[in-house]
């Protein structure tokens, strides 16, 4: 099987007070193993909702989301959590590191079998070898985002889902982060899906999907 995540006729509705928001309106998308996709679109176009469904953080109102061929609704809440832990790495715009933990402890946190040597090796690869004992507040934005990437890699995920990973970074750090993601994709075969507003970040993807009003309005492949 070549597809890792498949979304079919996916609709997602939210209720905000008495108002119903249609975040996704019958969306179809196939994410192939080893691909690097950027999802772009204006605010409210449904990019983050799509990422949440792909990452099993939420379930669709109608339609199906399948991970490696199985509908995510067939998994119990516990199994969904375990799938997130074993197969998916998340990167968030606001870093979301645990402020009470050191860099090393943040990477060890999700590990199924905590292995400090492995955590250090990941941090070394991301240029953080001298930051093991630092806390979030002692790191720059770019460094914090690299720690988040290290945490996402802790359990050797098959796919990394990144929601505006460069949203709070300058151009230089944006390029550093996107280069890391490209390397992970090309050298380790990890599937990468990045939601971004930033065209510089989108340049690194092999395919850019454009969304508007909860549907895909176009996609183009790039080298």
């Amino acid at each position: 099987m070549n597809e890792i995540i498949v979304l079919e006729k996916v609709r997602k509705e939210y209720h905000v007070g008495e108002e119903t928001v249609n975040a996704l309106r019958g969306l179809d998308l196939v994410i192939k193993k080893g691909s690097f996709i950027a999802i772009m679109g204006p605010s409210g176009s449904g990019k983050s909702t799509l990422l949440h469904l792909a990452g099993i953080l939420d379930v669709p109102t109608t339609g199906t989301v399948s991970l490696e061929g199985k509908d995510i609704k067939e998994y119990s809440s516990k199994e969904q959590a375990q799938l997130r832990r074993h197969k998916i790495g998340f990167i968030f715009q606001r870093y979301n590191l645990m402020p009470q933990l050191t860099v090393l402890e943040n990477v060890l946190l999700p590990m199924v079998k905590p292995d400090p040597e492995k955590a250090k090796a990941i941090l070394d690869k991301l240029g953080l070898s001298d930051k093991y004992d630092r806390f979030q507040g002692q790191l720059s934005g770019g460094e914090q985002q690299r720690v988040v990437i290290a945490r996402a890699l802790a359990n050797d995920p098959a796919i990394i889902l990144a929601d505006e990973p460069t949203g709070e970074l300058d151009t230089e750090n944006t390029r550093i982060i996107m280069n890391i993601l490209r390397e992970l994709n090309q050298k380790e075969g990890i599937t990468i899906v990045v939601v971004t507003h930033n065209p510089i970040a989108a340049e690194y993807a092999e395919k850019v999907i454009k969304m508007q009003d909860g549907v895909i309005i176009g996609e183009n492949s790039q080298n």
Partner: peptide, 15 residues
């Protein structure tokens, strides 16, 4: 938000 992150990175409701 921290609890959200914990759940996102794979900790179960029970954990």
């Amino acid at each position: 938000r921290e609890i959200g992150v914990l759940k996102a990175i794979g900790f179960t409701n029970h954990e």
